[in-house]
């Protein structure tokens, strides 16, 4: 654990905060939900923004999308992938985490018939976005795409699984056209693997539907200074450099140069 004696030095809005773990459990195969107590982060986060957690003695913090908030706590979803997330699985209720955030920019909140799509652990910001749009009574439908049935308290309007353990068997591309027509979608918001986001963005563009995508990148800082996660984005006819962590992670789909 971090040295808590330094707490008296904390006086700024984005941390580091030394925040208590309220809950940490596996909710679906290899996907965990971590609930952390922090009024500051809960009150200031928008769907699409992320926080970074100091894990074990690793040099780099690990970034996670905020997956939901209450008055004085927030949720994260994480998939166990390496040293950092493995360490996270050992956190117990009452443990203290060293956390910074919220960082980056979130999804636009608009009164449009929105289609929210989350693939795999990319469902995290979509879960949060669903709560926010519901609270504002804004119109939306949701799609969750997984390998196997995702055991979460949330109900998605369309729950697609590769193995057919949910109502819809197959891939996102098998159903997208039908869903867009059915829901008269005006704007799509998606978080998931790059190929899925690229597919959806390009398909939506062909129908003249706007998209916003939440990207993932490798960075050291989370503040835009290390330039580790720099990508090119299209601004008119020109290409500009943007940092996923600072200028994103949410970008307009049509601006992204997919590699």
């Amino acid at each position: 654990m971090q040295n808590l004696k330094d707490q008296n030095l904390i006086r700024v809005s984005k941390g580091p905060f030394f925040a208590k773990v309220l809950e940490n459990r596996e909710i679906s195969d290899n996907i965990y939900k971590l609930r952390i107590e922090s009024e500051e982060i809960a009150q200031n986060s928008l769907p699409g923004q992320f926080v970074s957690i100091k894990c074990a003695d690793l040099t780099l913090r690990r970034p996670f999308s905020v997956a939901g908030v209450r008055e004085n706590s927030f949720d994260l979803l994480y998939k166990v992938k390496g040293t950092g997330t493995e360490w996270l699985t050992n956190l117990k209720t009452g443990d203290i985490t060293d956390i910074i955030g919220p960082m980056g920019n979130g999804f636009s909140i608009e009164n449009k018939k929105s289609l929210l799509i989350g693939c795999g652990v990319g469902i995290a910001p979509i879960d949060f976005f669903m709560d926010v749009l519901s609270a504002k009574s804004l119109p939306y439908k949701s799609i969750g795409c997984f390998r196997s049935k995702y055991k979460n308290a949330k109900e998605y309007d369309y729950h697609i699984t590769e193995d057919g353990t949910s109502a819809l068997k197959g891939k996102l591309s098998d159903y997208l056209e039908q869903i867009i027509t059915e829901t008269a979608t005006e704007k799509i918001f998606i978080c998931g693997p790059n190929p899925a986001m690229q597919y959806v963005t390009e398909y939506a563009l062909s129908l003249n539907i706007e998209t916003e995508v939440a990207l993932e990148g490798d960075f050291a800082c989370g503040t835009g200074v290390c330039m580790g996660c720099a990508i090119k984005i299209k601004k008119g006819n020109a290409l500009e450099s943007a940092k996923i962590c600072k200028d994103g992670p949410v970008f307009k789909g049509e601006e992204v140069v997919w590699r």
């Binding site: 330094d6 030095l9 700024v12 941390g15 580091p16 100091k54 040099t59 780099l60 913090r61 060293d98 910074i100 050291a220 800082c221 503040t223 290390c226």
Partner: peptide, 12 residues
């Protein structure tokens, strides 16, 4: 690099 681990390391 210490700043990446603890953004306020220099102040501390």
């Amino acid at each position: 690099t210490g700043t990446f681990t603890h953004p306020n390391l220099s102040e501390k």
